[in-house]
């Protein structure tokens, strides 16, 4: 791994600059959309859960703003600004439309927020100094999100066979896209990010970290039936099924370029320019 430090995108070679820009935009858009989805659940099952949802939404919007804030230097260094249209958005594909139930909320809280945490933690010792500075605060706030996710997951999983089966379905709907989201093995993006020391491991390494966290919680504690098992010999958690990478776009970290649905895009248009409107 490179020992160099980078203060500005102009110090990165062109291939790495584009890979870092793509990563930051994926993180910004995904956190932006996750914040929007969390914020839609003011009618959560209990008043305490509503307050916690909005608090998490507030965190996600704050994190999105931090990542959007990093992009300006890249535009100055010659990376073109993206066009503000849905198909250019790089949010995780499971956030394109509003969640149908509280179980979708819990599934995303566990899997999407969990994958985001793993990705961002891999930037803790990043050679790109501006991102390294903001990681600690994000990681600390994410711990509270994981506590919330874990609490709800275990509550529903222990409520009875029917809620547990429904929760399993909600998790399975986004299971593969979440695992893909961490990055395709051997892609040019991966190689650029790791060789320049931007992040400390590749997508395969991130996936291993995620499933090492999820296995004990989902399978052992919650007793959920997901394609994940503990290898009796190595003691490591392994995926039970191969991932299908067909159509996966390394720059967008998703399999389709459809972006948020029209209703969602209308809501996020106020975020254009990546600044919060302060009244008219």
């Amino acid at each position: 791994m490179s020992q160099r430090e980078f203060q500005n995108p102009t110090e990165l070679d062109e291939r790495t600059r584009q890979a870092v820009y793509d990563l930051f935009l994926v993180l910004a858009d995904t956190k932006h959309l996750l914040g929007l989805r969390y914020g839609e659940w003011l009618g959560a099952p209990a008043i305490e859960a509503s307050i916690a949802s909005v608090a998490m939404a507030q965190d996600e919007f704050g994190h999105a703003r931090l990542f959007y804030g990093l992009l300006g230097d890249f535009h100055q260094a010659g990376v073109p600004e993206r066009e503000e249209k849905p198909e250019e958005y790089r949010n995780f594909e499971g956030l394109d439309r509003a969640w149908e139930s509280w179980l979708d909320f819990i599934a995303a809280n566990v899997l999407v927020d969990g994958a985001l945490s793993v990705q961002i933690e891999a930037l803790r010792g990043s050679s790109y100094v501006p991102v390294r500075r903001m990681v600690a605060k994000i990681v600390q706030e994410e711990r509270f999100h994981q506590q919330h996710a874990r609490g709800w997951l275990l509550r529903v999983a222990r409520e009875g066979a029917k809620p547990k089966a429904e929760l399993e379905k909600a998790l399975k709907r986004i299971w593969e896209p979440v695992l893909l989201w961490l990055g395709r093995p051997g892609s040019e993006h991966e190689r650029a990010l790791v060789s320049a020391g931007i992040q400390d491991t590749d997508g395969e390494g991130l996936r291993t970290r995620l499933i090492e966290r999820l296995g004990p919680l989902l399978v052992e504690e919650a007793g959920l039936d997901l394609p994940l098992s503990n290898d009796a010999i190595t003691g490591q958690w392994v995926l039970g099924t191969a991932l299908s990478w067909e159509g996966f776009d390394d720059a967008f970290r998703r399999r389709s370029r459809t972006g948020p649905d029209p209703e969602t895009f209308r809501q996020i248009e106020s975020f254009l320019g990546h600044a919060y409107p302060v009244g008219s």
Binding site: E48, A55, F144, Q147, W152
Partner: peptide, 18 residues
Amino acid sequence: VVAPNEDLAAAYARSIYN
């Protein structure tokens, strides 16, 4: 705070008493 388990008690406490 009233909560169904320890994790949610901590998550609720943190968001309500912030």
